[in-house]
Amino acid sequence: MNSPLAHPALFHLGPVPITNGVVVTWAIMAVLVIGAQRATRHLSLHPGRLQAALELIVETVDSQIRETMRVEPGPYRGFIGTLFAFIFIANWSTLIPGVEPPTAHLETDAALALLVFLAVIYYGVQAGGLRGYLGSFATPTPLMIPLNFIESLTRTFSLLVRLFGNVMSGVFVVGIVLSLAGLLVPIPLMALDLLTGAVQAYIFATLAMVFIASAVSESRDTTEPQQPRTPS
């Protein structure tokens, strides 16, 4: 049995090695983009069932963003919703025989965490400017700058490790059980793996919202003048 941590290149595009996870990611991208393009080709003011389902998805994402971030969802909808959709479909791609989910690869999870890290910086700077964002590291006191900086790295790393650990362990356990037992024995574990994948997609998206909302809020608090307290 091969190690789940080893991902040999399937082929090379010049000097660039293309692994199985990259190919599956491309396939998921193709499905999502083509499906979205075809599904939204005939949107109208009088929605059918498909449009109603699509609008329900968008409304659900918007409501989650409103409840978690306490802001209007417009600027964050595409990023958060795409993260959730990609991770969810990637985790559930294990249902297709012979397909290994790209989120079981460390590089994919690291890429997702890296994007969240960059998004936190982008939205933080957008909300309070570069000075406001950097000033957020000095709250509540400049002495906390090293700790806040380390926190921003470690929470990104925690995203990476959490997603990778859950998905990779599921795949690994199912592979072990499948190699030891019969064909139908791993099915309950696969079902559990699907549940875990859905939950991990939700947790990843939620944590991304929390991190971004924290950066946005702290950046705004740093730049906006403090309101004088009035006795109540």
Partner: peptide, 9 residues
């Protein structure tokens, strides 16, 4: 890839 997917979606 994921950045492109975010933009395309």
């Amino acid at each position: 890839n994921i950045a492109i997917l975010i933009w395309l979606l």
